[in-house]
Design a protein around this nucleic acid. Structure first.
Length: 414
RNA sequence: GUGGCUGUAGCUCAGUUGGUUAGAGCGCCUGGUUGUGGUCCAGGAGGCCGUGGGUUCAAAUCCCAUCAGCCACCCCA
């Protein structure tokens, strides 16, 4: 802490950046509203157990990325690294089992102790949606459609690719996992060091390895399709058919593996080339076993999360801030009247920027800088007549306006 | 957590083989216009050269450490 600087991997949101985040979140929320998804806000920290148990002891998040600390009461707490576990916990502790299906949308900060780089921060923000209590593939289709429509509302759907895979049901996955471990163990000496580690942690990940040596071994590895149960295969087929019906394009990616243990069946990611190494923009899947694992009633769920910073990087200058009208008062009487009028006009729904101090020149210069549409000049001459001067800052034209007509006159600038 | 690149004014950057008061553009402030912006002209403020240590008569420049940013890996949003 030599100099006053933000904690590594955190970032201040200032000005148009802050505005862009809010606009983006609200645009997404509006789409979620139309899908009937209600807002939910869970705490940004939970008992460590909530994440440890649900994400799986072998996941990177639990192993090295959690912000965990002990509070003054001696409880181990963790800043949430993702949103689903908290929602699931709220579902259980709030006794919402009679409210099914539960459809919710959230937005807020997440925390992961990672090495930061572009598109990856220690505190970042996500929007997310969860659909709890719907075991049918229709639920998967809806949740994916919601994600696609939000990306579309933001104008970036066409720059993304929807990748789709199935992780099968639990029996299928365990059988396949076992087959993979057997196979790769037999070829362990040919595997990279990293993949040998993955063998115990998450064997499915080996399939996604970029190591050339690994690729050769992977080519002859068992194929998941051979281990998929009939039910799991039928489920996946329904999901694909639903997406086809809605005209949502996707690419099958058999190597798409989710990092968190609680996923099953459908896994999907909207990815882009535009963001470098961090290509995943919106990702999720089905988590049928999660709530039961946490000690709740067996309840299926499906959902996704998207990184707001990553989405924001894909938007092109969405600065659509309203152009204000600037009020410039001159002299004591003028400044007092400006303050008074500012409040009246704001209450009337206009966006008003009050010039607090300084003369006309400075007021106009500042008006120009903040891209104001018009300036209202309030000085002694005008006040004697009960009027003000309204200057259009684009044309430079000025007109005298009686104060009682000002609100109506400025309607053109709202 | 691993490897590579980078760090000079609010921003983008220049700074010659180490050499005396560290520069430019943009932005900001003031004046030219005691009540009229954007253009133009003149002037001004603003830098412990990321931080700490070392080498040297002398360090923005060389060495080490550290912090931060970027890129790749890992992983993920």
């Amino acid at each position: 802490m030599a100099k006053l600087q933000p904690v590594r991997g955190t970032h201040d949101l200032i000005g148009h950046e802050a505005r862009a985040h809010i606009a983006l979140t609200e645009a997404a929320r509006a789409v979620a509203d139309r899908y009937g998804y209600s807002p939910i806000a869970t705490p940004i920290f939970e008992f460590t157990d909530v994440f440890q148990r649900t994400l799986g002891d072998t996941s990177d998040i639990v192993k090295k990325e959690m912000y965990t600390f002990e509070d003054k009461g001696g409880d181990s707490l963790t800043l949430r690294p993702e949103g689903t576990a908290g929602v699931a916990r709220a579902f259980i502790s709030g006794g919402l089992r009679n409210e099914l299906p539960l459809k919710c949308f959230y937005a807020g900060p997440m925390f992961r102790y990672e090495r930061p780089q572009k598109g990856r921060l220690r505190q970042f923000h996500q929007i997310g949606a969860e659909l709890i209590g719907v075991p049918e593939p229709t639920g998967d289709v809806e949740i994916i459609a919601l994600g696609a429509d939000i990306l579309d509302a933001l104008g970036i759907l066409t720059e993304t690719t929807l990748e789709l895979n199935t992780l099968g049901d639990l029996p299928s996955r365990l059988a396949y996992r076992g087959a993979l471990v057997d196979y790769f163990t037999g070829h362990a000496d040919a595997l990279s060091e990293e993949s040998r580690e993955r063998l115990t942690r998450n064997p499915l990940r080996i399939l996604d390895s970029k190591d050339p040596g690994d690729r050769a071994v992977i080519n002859d590895a068992p194929v998941f399709d051979d281990y998929l149960s009939g039910d799991a295969r039928a489920f996946f087929k329904s999901v694909r058919a639903g997406l086809d019906t809605l005209g949502i394009a996707y690419e099958l990616n058999p190597r798409l593996v989710r990092g968190l243990d609680y996923y099953s069946h459908t896994a999907f990611e909207f990815t882009t080339e535009a963001l470098g190494a961090q290509g995943t923009v919106l990702a999720g899947g089905r988590y049928d076993g999660l709530i039961e694992t946490m000690g709740g009633p067996a309840t299926p769920g499906v959902g996704w999360a998207a990184g707001i910073e990553r989405l924001a990087m894909m938007l092109r200058d969405p600065d659509v801030a309203v152009r204000p009208v600037v009020l410039v008062g001159m002299g004591d009487d003028g400044e007092r009247e400006a303050m008074h009028l500012a409040r009246e006009l704001r209450c009337a729904g206009l966006t008003i920027d009050l010039q607090y101090k300084g003369g006309l020149k400075r007021g106009l210069r500042r008006a120009n800088r903040i891209n104001a549409a018009a300036a209202v000049l309030i000085g002694a001459d005008e006040l004697l007549r009960g009027a003000v001067t309204v200057r259009d800052l684009d044309s430079g034209e000025q007109v005298d306006v009686v104060i009682t007509d000002l609100t109506d006159h400025l309607a053109a600038y709202r």
